[in-house]
Design a protein around this nucleic acid. Structure first.
Length: 207
DNA sequence: TAGGCCATCTGGTCCT
DNA sequence: AGGACCAGATGGCCTA
């Protein structure tokens, strides 16, 4: 396992997160919950049987911190870790092509979209190389106009013969953007396909 | 109201 | 021993 990266101050809870956290906000002072292993009052995991999950293999330690305190600290760390993960996902969302207003990709959509997007850019570079765009040292810059990318309805999309989608992603929708060469002398148009799962929920935004 | 998404808690496992 | 990571469980919120 790789060395752990210290938890940076990237705890940027989402609005939904903030709601949840306020709902589970800890008591203000002197939490006696530490003794019971609960950091703060919360709904019990009653399940269908109305009983909390069974505690399996509880190790009784004669030394060190009480179990309750350790559990509270572990919960805090886990919460922080998940917030860190969410921050990374937000950072990933921020560099993906713009979506319709107020549309936020879910976690799984973000990962799939990013996967598709990276593949599209890689494919673009490959094609550019084949056409000689990369000769002379000018190269391609990062996509500069993806923020104004156009969303095309499926009916208007014509499958590009030069840019076949990967087999595992059905060519249901396309997205177009331009990539500029570093010297800004030429524009390299890109059309790539977005997994239908990512786009489906935003259909109404651009129809 | 059902289903999707999410945050959180929790215990187990692995690693340092 | 303690922290990071993981997966399962649970309940809240939101939308079709």
């Amino acid at each position: 396992m790789s060395p752990k990266v210290p938890c940076a101050s990237t705890d940027l809870p989402t609005s939904r997160d903030a709601v949840t956290r306020s709902r589970f906000s800890p008591p203000s002072a002197g939490g006696t919950a530490e003794d019971s292993g609960e950091s703060f009052p919360r709904k019990q995991h009653t399940g269908t049987g109305g009983e909390p999950p069974a505690v399996k293999h509880v190790k009784q330690k004669s030394r060190g911190e009480p179990r309750g305190r350790r559990r509270v600290k572990a919960n805090d760390r886990e919460r922080s870790r998940m917030h860190n993960l969410n921050s990374a996902l937000d950072a990933l969302r921020s560099i993906l092509p713009a979506l319709p207003e107020d549309a936020k990709l879910t976690k799984i959509e973000t990962l799939r979209f990013a996967h598709n997007y990276i593949w599209a850019l890689t494919e673009t570079l490959r094609m550019a190389d084949q056409r000689g765009y990369l000769q002379g040292g000018s190269g391609l810059s990062s996509p500069t106009s993806v923020s104004s990318a156009e969303w095309d309805s499926p009916a208007e999309c014509a499958t590009s013969a030069e840019f076949e989608p990967r087999n595992c992603y059905p060519p249901s929708h396309q997205m177009k953007c331009n990539i500029l060469t570093r010297d800004q002398s030429s524009v390299f148009p890109v059309t790539f396909y977005i997994e239908s799962l990512c786009v489906e929920k935003y259909k109404h935004s651009w129809q």
